[in-house]
Amino acid sequence: MSGFDETLLDDADETVRVRFVVNGRKVACEVAPRETLVDCLRNALELTGTHAGCEMGACGACLVQLDGRAVHSCLMFAVQADGAKINTIEGLTESGVIADLQAEFHHRNALQCGFCTPGMLVNAHELLSQIARPSRDEIRDALSGNYCRCTGYEAIVDAIDAVAKARKESGGGT
């Protein structure tokens, strides 16, 4: 009945093999159970676009898409993601789905140091996939878990607002 093997208790320092699909590619890596997903992505897979900020779910710099939803990669261990589909900022960039958001962030100076930007984009992408034409209040509410220490947020809200409007006008709104 039980799938639990007690010898596991002595193996806390042993690495285990996890497999996931990252940015459309199947990957396997050896991780210690205590290794967070963000560390695994950055260190083992060298996908350093995902940023480790507060490492406690407050700043939003580490957001990735996990099975289609934005999640904090610092708030889960890589072993928990075994079998999942993950898209990082690199994958979203390659696929072109956020190209308009990125261009608008650039155009409106919606970043200065850029540390928060990957998380902002992952979050904005999810927001616009759920609400085609969010109000500025809804945008601000959605961004409430993403810290930016440079811009004062105004330009970020402007950029997302402009993209939502442009997508709607071009009929591409989802």
Partner: peptide, 25 residues
């Protein structure tokens, strides 16, 4: 900071989860 080392077990049923908890003391 990083978590202290632990072992990880993915339970498939409630019974498995309860059993693992008990056997880890």
């Amino acid at each position: 900071m990083k978590a202290r080392a632990f072992s990880y077990f993915r339970a498939a049923t409630i019974d498995q989860a309860l059993d693992a908890h008990a056997r880890a003391g």
